[in-house]
Computed example of a mutant assay.
Amino acid sequence: MGYHINGVELETDAEGYLLEPDYSEEAVRVIAAADGIVLTDEHWEVIGYMRDQYREHGHTPNFRNMLKGYSEIRQGVDSKYLYDLFPLGPAKQAAKVAGLPQPLGKGGY
């Protein structure tokens, strides 16, 4: 399986995560559509956060740390808010839609 993004087929793992990060907006649109997500400004904000975390730490946060870190940026965020945006699991699905590799392990950072 792979995604066709800007005329190139990008490799994925068995669960549809890119093997190498792609920071293009087109990657987000293609992956979100494949997951049945209609993107809103709120999605883009979370995607930006996940991409920043990946660039800074080399991986994305687990859900607990994602909720804590993101709620420092946007007041009033709780787990329901994030699950409404990414119903298959905010930490994993947001990373996938952001065009990032699959989060490793259960713990994250």
Rank of each mutant, 00 (worst) to 15 (best):
1 M>G: 14
5 I>F: 01
5 I>S: 04
6 N>F: 03
7 G>R: 06
8 V>M: 13
8 V>H: 06
9 E>K: 15
11 E>C: 05
12 T>D: 05
14 A>R: 15
15 E>I: 02
17 Y>N: 10
19 L>F: 04
20 E>Q: 14
22 D>G: 05
23 Y>M: 09
24 S>Q: 10
27 A>F: 06
29 R>I: 13
30 V>P: 02
30 V>I: 15
30 V>Y: 07
32 A>Y: 10
33 A>S: 14
33 A>T: 11
35 D>S: 11
35 D>M: 14
36 G>H: 12
37 I>M: 09
39 L>Y: 05
42 E>R: 14
43 H>T: 08
44 W>H: 13
46 V>N: 02
48 G>Q: 04
50 M>C: 03
52 D>V: 01
52 D>N: 10
56 E>D: 08
56 E>K: 14
56 E>F: 05
56 E>L: 12
58 G>I: 01
59 H>T: 10
60 T>W: 06
61 P>D: 05
61 P>Q: 08
64 R>C: 00
64 R>P: 00
66 M>V: 10
67 L>I: 05
67 L>W: 07
68 K>A: 14
68 K>E: 10
73 I>G: 00
74 R>P: 00
74 R>S: 07
76 G>Y: 06
76 G>F: 06
77 V>F: 09
78 D>C: 02
80 K>H: 08
82 L>I: 06
82 L>R: 05
83 Y>L: 12
84 D>I: 02
86 F>C: 10
87 P>V: 08
91 A>P: 00
92 K>R: 15
93 Q>P: 04
94 A>S: 15
94 A>E: 04
95 A>R: 04
95 A>Q: 03
96 K>D: 07
97 V>E: 06
97 V>D: 02
99 G>I: 05
99 G>L: 02
99 G>N: 09
100 L>R: 02
103 P>C: 02
104 L>A: 13
105 G>M: 07
109 Y>I: 04
